[in-house]
């Protein structure tokens, strides 16, 4: 117990936190785009699975990780188009279409894995890239600046997403479509098109989240590789109050508690492992209860838009 706060342990906790947070960052920031435009995409987990498989398969066959990444993005885009078609054009109940997308991704990824690969294999994933100078900073340097490219990109995504949503006309349109689609429509904004684009941005990012699992974090593919991470990512969007920075906070909190509980187990702290594993979920709820959370959700969230209604 006494050595749980040693430097070695703290740096270990932070290292694992960053690795674990990466897929959540991609997926949850992607979901921020979709939800800000008014579409709840519960199918993130399914997109992640199918893209994780695509990335792994392409990387395995071609030996090129970048092609794998591209494949993940393309698969994400296709799944995003499917989700948009059903949820935006056909105005489906989003909670249900998302569950359908999840099941499709879960089933299809396992099916393709079985037919095209057949057994668990590993590949050489993205290697850590040391940033010169920065990685030499004592203590924090090795934690923050000795990661692979997908990790850096995930953290860079936070300011980029913030900028796009807050400082560009496109971001404004996304928000207006999620707040008051009828008004946006009367201003000449094509509501459906903005929603398509937002859902697809979200889906491509979910695809990258899948790739970050299969070709950077675990370097393999296995049935149900995500184990429900996509759902946690959706929850983190609510935690972060639809802001990329808030999502970053949520992802880091969830991941730091998760890596903390692993360290507690490794160091032999006397706590049942079931309770330890529960901690990240429990603390996420508790954290949201104690921090005053008065962010209003996008007014048209989960509501399909039809001209002439309202």
């Amino acid at each position: 117990m006494k050595n749980i706060f040693s430097l070695n342990v703290i740096s270990g906790i932070l290292n694992t936190m960053i690795a674990l947070a990466t897929p959540y960052l991609y997926a949850a920031i992607g979901e921020v785009f979709a939800q800000t435009a008014g579409v709840v995409n519960l199918g993130v987990d399914g997109i992640m699975l199918l893209s994780a498989f695509a990335a792994f398969y392409v990387a395995l066959v071609t030996g090129n990780l970048w092609l794998g990444l591209l494949a993940a993005a393309v698969v994400g885009l296709l799944m995003g188009l499917l989700m948009s078609f059903v949820s935006v054009s056909l105005k489906a109940e989003q909670g249900v279409s998302g569950i359908g997308l999840y099941m499709l991704g879960l089933g299809l990824s396992s099916l393709l894995f079985k037919v095209m690969i057949g057994t668990v294999k590993t590949i050489e994933g993205f290697k850590p890239v040391e940033l010169p100078l920065l990685s030499a900073i004592p203590f924090l340097g090795p934690i923050l600046f000795r990661n692979n490219i997908l990790v850096y990109a995930a953290f860079l995504l936070v300011p980029i997403a913030w900028f796009v949503l807050e400082k560009t006309t496109f971001g404004l349109k996304v928000k207006s479509v999620g707040q008051n689609p009828a008004a946006a429509d009367s201003l000449g904004i094509n509501v459906d098109r903005i929603r398509y684009v937002s859902v697809c941005i979200g889906a491509v990012l979910a695809g990258l989240a899948g790739a970050s699992l299969s070709i950077s974090l675990t370097n393999l593919f296995q049935d149900n590789l995500t184990a429900g991470m996509g759902f946690i990512a959706v929850a983190l969007v609510y935690f972060g109050g639809w802001s990329p920075v808030g999502v970053l906070g949520g992802a880091l909190l969830f991941s730091v508690v998760n890596s903390f509980q692993l360290w507690m187990q490794v160091l032999g702290v006397n706590i049942p492992s079931g309770v330890a594993v529960m901690l990240p979920y429990l603390l996420t709820i508790v954290a949201l209860c104690v921090t005053v959370n008065r962010v209003r959700q996008p007014a048209a969230l989960n509501k399909p838009f039809e001209r002439g209604e309202s």
Binding site: L213, L217, L220, L262, Q265, S273, G274, V277, M278
Partner: peptide, 11 residues
């Protein structure tokens, strides 16, 4: 360490 999940490869 016990992760509580049969499928959580990342954890």
């Amino acid at each position: 360490t016990w992760t509580g999940s049969f499928s959580d490869v990342a954890l």
